[in-house]
Design a protein around this nucleic acid. Structure first.
Length: 404
DNA sequence: CGCGTTTGACCCGCGC
DNA sequence: GCGCGGGTCAAACGCG
């Protein structure tokens, strides 16, 4: 994987050089990207992020100071973002993946629906409607959201930590092409339904202004491009990203009738950051395919520590609180203010509620009940977090409360 | 053999 | 109108 990445990097670096030397028009975009990248790499700590609220800022600070501070990342003591039981049981020192985390999350949701909030926290940025989410970061990472898409951060793999900022891809497009992207996405959705023929493609153009799918961008610090989120994805395209040595990969959910797509690309400025953008909502529970599995329960990551690029990849968790604030369900009201919407429609600049299972990657509402039995769940923090993390979390929580 | 990836061609919208 | 860039298609290929 790394080798491949390096190759790609080299290849695209050449392209990049060519582009830089020949195209002036690229500069604008490049600058935009750099803004994003700089935002994500220049400051070592999330604390430097521009956030829309003091609370968020506070969280960021905690994250930055402690590096791995779940409490700073997650909302409440009881709202464990990521159940880390997997780590305890299988790879205590190997916080494998974001996937695992996500999976855990889902378990948690499955077992304790409203009682706990989701793991990710989103931080809407004032100016650009971007969202950030913090996750435990082995390394301090900073990101800045500049697109209309939701961004999230998540630790993804042993070597990975995640940071999230706005989707670069989204960010790169946002200022200038946000509108365009929106339209295109909409068309893409149509394409999926009518995919295949040129006449069909033309037909889709007849409804150019259909509402586009909600999109969510996550920034994840990881050496792994594709993080296993339990869903099965089929890669249907790859494109070189302008001014980036890394290509952008396009994935589609393999489940029949599910039009969820995601794009994965690596930040050119910080190759350790993977930007994943999800589009659409899964119309199904976690896949149970012939050779598949219930993704959350049997992630390859658990076995290998990393997923292959193919079948499964990172996808966005669908935290319930990732809803428009006005639509959020009243849980954990105490911290609810910090739970900002991650989901947003970039087409009109407003947040939308994709539904109870809004995030493309996580249909919590559809979670198989069986999943809850897999993980110990006493409804306690200890059920979810490894002791060390719990300690950190408790500390940070305490600090947080002290500050209040 | 089925499924997923690769990759060049193609489509489309936008900016100049 | 043209070129560019993002996104998708689909045949070829690889892998288990």
């Amino acid at each position: 994987m790394e080798k491949k990445i390096e190759e790609d990097h080299h290849q695209h670096q050449q392209q990049k050089e060519q582009l830089n030397s020949t195209k002036n028009t690229d500069k604008k975009i490049d600058q935009q990207e750099q803004q994003i990248s700089q935002a994500s790499s220049s400051s070592p700590h999330m604390a430097n992020l521009v956030t829309s609220s003091d609370y968020h800022l506070h969280q960021l600070e905690l994250a930055g100071n402690n590096n791995i501070n779940l409490s700073s990342i997650f909302d409440t003591p009881t709202s464990l973002p990521f159940p880390y039981s997997y780590f305890d049981d299988n790879s205590s020192n190997n916080p494998n993946s974001f996937l695992d985390l996500l999976r855990q999350d889902q378990h948690q949701f499955a077992s304790s629906s409203n009682s706990s909030s989701f793991s990710f926290d989103a931080f809407p940025l004032q100016n650009n409607n971007m969202f950030f989410t913090d996750l435990p970061l082995p390394q301090p990472v900073t990101t800045r959201a500049e697109s209309s898409e939701v961004v999230n951060t998540a630790p993804t793999s042993p070597n990975s930590t995640s940071v999230s900022s706005s989707s670069n891809e989204a960010a790169a497009n946002d200022n200038n092409t946000n509108k365009e992207v929106t339209v295109k996405d909409r068309e893409e959705g149509d394409q999926q339904e009518h995919k295949g023929t040129k006449p069909q493609l033309k037909a889709k153009k007849k409804n150019p202004k259909k509402a586009r799918e909600a999109r969510f961008a996550f920034l994840t610090k990881s050496d792994i491009d594709n993080l296993d989120d339990g869903y099965r994805w089929r890669k249907y395209g790859q494109k070189a990203v302008k001014n980036s040595p890394y290509p952008r990969s396009y994935y589609r959910c393999t489940t029949v009738g599910c039009g969820v797509k995601k794009r994965v690309e690596r930040s050119s400025d910080d190759p350790s950051i993977v930007m994943t953008t999800y589009e659409g909502q899964h119309s199904h529970p976690f896949p149970m395919t012939p050779r598949g599995h219930i993704g959350m329960l049997t992630s390859p990551i658990l076995d290998h520590g990393a997923t292959t690029a193919s079948s499964s990849s990172f996808s966005i968790p669908q935290p319930r609180y990732l809803l428009p604030q006005h639509q959020q369900q009243p849980y954990n009201s105490m911290y609810n203010t910090s739970l900002n919407i991650i989901n947003r429609s970039s087409s009109d600049g407003t947040f939308i509620n994709p539904g109870s299972s809004s995030f493309p990657g996580f249909g919590y509402d559809h979670m198989p009940q069986a999943s809850t039995s897999v993980i110990r769940d006493h409804g306690l923090l200890q059920d979810i977090l490894p002791s060390q993390i719990r300690e950190d979390t408790i500390k940070s929580q305490t600090n947080e409360e002290d500050k209040k």
